[in-house]
């Protein structure tokens, strides 16, 4: 499954909890500073490894992360196979 995240840098305080929890290790810390003086988390995912698993948004204390996932469109036959 493909997913991605958007991190609101102005809300992020650089606590790095999302960096540690990400199973695909696609979150890093930016070299830039936010207006509050923190170095925010950024998504570094050139290979599209993010699955939208929600772990980062669950652990984020500042609710700075929005998570997206690829909408899966299946034919009726595929749906039947997936349910079986």
């Amino acid at each position: 499954m493909r997913g991605t995240i958007r991190i609101d840098a102005n809300r992020c305080k650089g606590c790095e909890l999302c960096v540690g929890i990400c199973p695909k290790k696609v979150i890093g810390i930016a070299d830039t500073f936010t207006p509050k003086g923190y170095r925010p988390a950024i998504l570094v995912d050139p290979d599209g490894q993010c699955t939208g698993c929600l772990l980062c948004s669950t652990i984020c204390p500042d609710v700075a992360i929005t998570v997206y996932r690829e909408a899966v469109s299946r034919t009726p036959a595929q749906k039947h196979a997936a349910a079986a």
Partner: peptide, 22 residues
């Protein structure tokens, strides 16, 4: 084709909190 699966709840105001990191 991507849909939102998590976003900030409506009743949590879109402000930066005063709490410390973490």
């Amino acid at each position: 084709t991507m849909t939102v699966v998590y976003e900030r709840p409506e009743t949590l105001l879109p402000v930066v909190s005063h709490y410390c990191p973490g």
